[in-house]
């Protein structure tokens, strides 16, 4: 195998992670832009969606696409619940308070999942072999790519494109963008920020459900916190890209798996690196963020006194 082959296959191997992470990041960004908070419950909400899909498919023999639709609906409902029932009714909720409420949501949902889903008791299951786990498209003599990855990437790309088109062209998108820049002014200009925010939460829930279902296709659902790593990465991607824009975090979400893949690629030649792979990825990310705290694609801010 040549160096190029190795590089190409490691990079292609990161495709599924990229597709999952992009969706999760987009969800986090949407919520951050409209509610000014980081949604720590994103991972668990997504997990609920994927558990529902699994439950329906395993125990009720429901076709896959209906299962996924149900998962998406669950994500949307939980998102709406957080925004409409909790945030709007709190008496003293500020940005940090919202953040902590989402952390409380994590505990709540982690507690709820084993009650509701029988599948949560099963250990380490793979969900949803979309096409087939072992089917490959052979690109050259040494490089092959899983069909699953391609499907994932396709789905992800389509969804991201749709969301971006919505953001830039639709009325909702305009609302989100104006709410993001200043909620009060947007409200005064006649934009119904409640609807905008609720819609963002719903879309974030749906994105989460899709991402978790995809993630469960190539990774184990060991317990209800199985999305934690993705979620942490999504947050870091947001900061890496900068919360100021919508495309920044998405690009960040592409960069992180690539960094990981690159380190994995070097680990082929320096074997000791493989034990330290995750550490190195996060150290690189941390250094990048420290170098540009406003994000790689964000503008510099001046503090007003």
């Amino acid at each position: 195998m040549t160096v190029f082959d190795n590089l190409a296959s490691t990079l292609l191997g990161s495709l599924p992670s990229i597709s999952v992470l992009v969706l999760a990041t987009l969800a986090v960004t949407l919520i951050f832009k409209t509610s000014y908070t980081t949604n720590f419950a994103q991972g668990v909400i997504s997990a609920v969606g994927s558990y529902l899909v699994m439950e329906l498919m395993l125990f009720y023999r429901v076709p896959m696409y209906i299962g996924i639709l149900a998962g998406i609906t669950a994500g949307i409902l939980i998102g709406l619940f957080i925004d409409i029932v909790i945030f709007r009714n709190g008496r003293y909720v500020n940005a940090i308070g919202k953040q902590i409420i989402t952390m409380g949501m994590v505990s709540l949902l982690v507690g709820v999942i084993p009650f509701v889903f029988k599948t949560a008791g099963l250990e380490a299951v793979y969900l949803m072999p979309m096409v087939a786990l072992n089917k490959y498209v052979v690109l050259s003599k040494n490089i092959a790519i899983q069909i699953n990855s391609l499907v994932y990437f396709g789905i992800s790309a389509v969804i991201v494109t749709v969301v971006f088109l919505l953001l830039n062209l639709s009325k909702w998108g305009l609302g989100v963008r104006s709410t993001a820049s200043n909620e009060q002014v947007a409200g005064m200009l006649g934009i119904n920020t409640y609807v905008i925010t609720a819609a963002s939460w719903a879309i974030a829930g749906a994105l989460g459900a899709v991402s978790a279902t995809m993630y469960a296709g190539f990774n184990m659902m060991s317990n209800s916190l199985f999305m934690t790593t993705i979620q942490v990465n999504a947050f870091l991607a947001c900061i890496l890209g900068g919360f100021a824009t919508f495309y920044g975090p998405v690009l960040g979400a592409v960069i992180i798996p690539l960094i990981s893949a690159l380190i994995g690629f070097t680990a082929i030649y320096i074997p000791t690196l493989s034990t330290w792979r995750e550490v190195l990825v996060y150290v690189v990310l941390l250094l990048l963020i420290l170098w540009k705290p406003q994000g790689l694609f964000g503008p510099r801010a001046v503090r007003k006194v």
Binding site: I86, N89, G90, R91, Y92, V93, G97, I100, I101, M103, G104, M105, V106, S107, L108, L109, V110, G111, V112, I113, P114, F115
Partner: peptide
């Protein structure tokens, strides 16, 4: 029998506290 119930309860408590008694 349901060890996660206490997690559920604490989550619920956290949300209530932040909502009404910061």
């Amino acid at each position: 029998e349901n060890p996660t119930f206490i997690t559920l309860f604490t989550g619920f408590l956290i949300i209530l506290v932040v909502m009404f008694y910061p």
